[in-house]
Design a protein around this nucleic acid. Structure first.
Length: 480
RNA sequence: GGGAUCGUGGUCUAGCUUGGUAUGAUACUUGCCUGGGGGGCAAGUGGUCGCAGGUUCAAAUCCUGCCGGUCCCA
């Protein structure tokens, strides 16, 4: 193996797909499981998920949401209670048909999503207006048999996610919840993962099967394809009626409740890899990085080693006391050069080099992963590392925003759209609101309506497909 | 759903056409030298050739089925 064959061997620009897979595997985030479409998370990958989970949990809790646990098996009779919902999920359900040697009469689904199971329970738990609102979130996995080619984090037959299920006395309150959650999703993804998103509604065609409407956040990836980053659904009474989730109101009249459900998955990790990674490998935003700062000591003799190591340990202690997640790479058998490349592949936001030359000057070299800048910082100014990490986090979001804007275009005519769609990107274009046009566009260009941004109701234009008066201006794109 | 392609020590790979004890690099272990961008020398460990059948005196190699990966098209 030559030097060029170590690390990532293709460039992000030339072969995006291969680049992505290599980053996932070589940065040791995940590996393939022995079953088609399933992956295994390794600690560096799982840490990112844990970090996101902690952030979401804090925000959910503030919003009065608590966590629960649901089992993975759902009887077919339950899953089929809401007909559209069932029809939508049925093609990709894994079925458990046997327990040991015995065939199971009412076969069991490995949950593709838990609405039906949760609401069966909810109907038992809710009787009075005093029981509302009921807001529970579940951290678990969902299983959907993928026919399409799978890709770690982006499309797998089992994925980690959270699914929240809330029940409210009024329509207004449920809709408010849908929006609150979408807001939490948006600010978490932007603040933690440094990924800009566009929020809005899904079209009727693209909404969650069984929902009244679906709100979504969408991002554009560097290869020009759109990725759905999370959805928050207003379920209305579509589930509360078949599942009899009802309550006696203050006037002692029984009402069906109003519901919301919402989820984000480890897809967010995939998006983070694609958006920020480069030809050296992963680039982690500081807030979710399992290791934020790595210290690489440099020495060329036993004597210098004796000076360098204690100083490096001291720096480690100081950073640690500033609540920075710091790692001291004391592997003696590897050269500094090897370590630099290794930590760059893993995406650690800041690398500190400390060697004899630095100690003479009472300083250390600080290298930023995301822009490869190297600066010397005095030992006395070590607390600056905290603000440098903040700075990196902000700048990563800024540059992601610039990328995203570059990938967003306005088009006036369908011919213009057709000629540009293969370049990828988000396209803002007028639409009449008619599903036929939406389907034709999908058929002819394989692009669909990713999101209809809020406040994009717009009757000032003409549908790019049929030329009738527009109702809104959605974002069209080819998606993952 | 349709098509193409791949699977050989941890990783990458030669060998396969024309069947005969599996090649090289890297990684790993030990020792010495090294050390500011993927170090050097020496010795050593490590392989059910994806799985299961079949053909054959003999299969990594030929045949069939399955499993898994990747890409393209719908």
């Amino acid at each position: 193996m030559s030097k060029e064959d170590i690390g990532i061997t293709v460039s992000k620009e030339d072969d995006f797909s291969e680049w992505y897979t290599q980053v996932v595997l070589k940065a040791k985030l995940a590996d393939y499981a022995p079953v088609k479409g399933l992956i295994v998370l390794r600690p560096d990958g799982y840490s990112i998920w844990e970090s996101l989970r902690n952030t979401f949990d804090k925000k959910f809790f503030k919003n009065g949401i608590r966590n629960g646990f649901l089992p993975v098996l759902i009887p077919e009779s339950l899953l089929g209670k809401e007909k559209k919902h069932f029809a939508g999920f049925n093609p990709e359900v894994f079925w458990v048909t046997h327990s040991g040697e015995n065939e199971i009469g009412d076969r069991l689904a490995l949950r593709p999503t838990s609405e039906t199971l949760a609401y069966t329970l909810y109907s038992k738990w809710i009787q009075s207006w005093r029981d509302l609102p009921l807001k529970i979130n579940f951290w678990n996995t969902a299983l959907r048999a993928e026919i399409k080619a799978t890709k770690p984090f982006l499309r797998t037959s089992e994925f980690l996610w959270q699914e929240g299920h809330t029940v409210h006395a009024t329509k207004e309150e449920a809709e408010e919840e849908v929006m609150k959650i979408l807001e939490i999703y948006k600010n978490t993804v932007e603040d933690e993962l440094a990924i800009p998103v566009v929020i809005g509604k899904k079209s009727e065609k693209e909404k969650f099967v069984g929902a009244v409407y679906t709100t979504t956040m969408e991002s554009i990836m560097p290869d020009g394809k759109a990725l759905q980053m999370g959805t928050s659904h207003f379920l209305g009474q579509n589930f509360s009626i078949p599942f009899e989730v009802k309550f006696a109101d203050k006037d002692n009249v029984e009402h069906f409740a109003w519901q919301s459900s919402w989820g984000v998955s480890w897809r967010l990790i995939g998006a983070m890899i694609m958006i920020h990674g480069d030809n050296k490998g992963l680039v982690l935003p500081p807030k979710v990085a399992p290791i934020q700062v790595v210290i690489v000591p440099i020495y060329n003799s036993e004597e210098t080693k004796k000076i360098v190591i204690p100083k490096a340990r001291e720096i480690q202690e100081k950073l640690s006391s500033e609540n920075i997640r710091v790692h001291f790479d004391d592997r003696d058998e590897l050269t500094p050069g090897y370590k630099f490349n290794d930590w760059e592949l893993k995406g650690v936001p800041i690398r500190i080099e400390i060697g004899p030359k630095d100690i003479e000057k009472q300083s250390m070299m600080v290298a930023k992963r995301y822009n490869k800048e190297k600066t010397s910082i005095q030992f006395d100014n070590i607390k600056n590392i905290v603000s440098i990490l903040d700075e990196i986090q902000k700048q990563m979001l800024e540059s992601a925003k610039i990328q995203s804007e570059k990938n967003t275009r306005k088009v006036d005519s369908y011919s213009e759209f057709k000629s540009k769609i293969s370049d990828g990107g988000f396209f803002n274009a007028y639409w009449c609101g008619n599903q036929e046009c939406e389907e034709k566009i999908k058929e002819e260009t394989s692009a669909d309506i990713r999101v209809i941004p809020f406040d994009s109701e717009d009757t000032s234009g003409k549908c790019m497909y049929c030329q009738k008066q527009s109702t809104c201006k959605p974002v069209f794109a080819r998606g993952y």
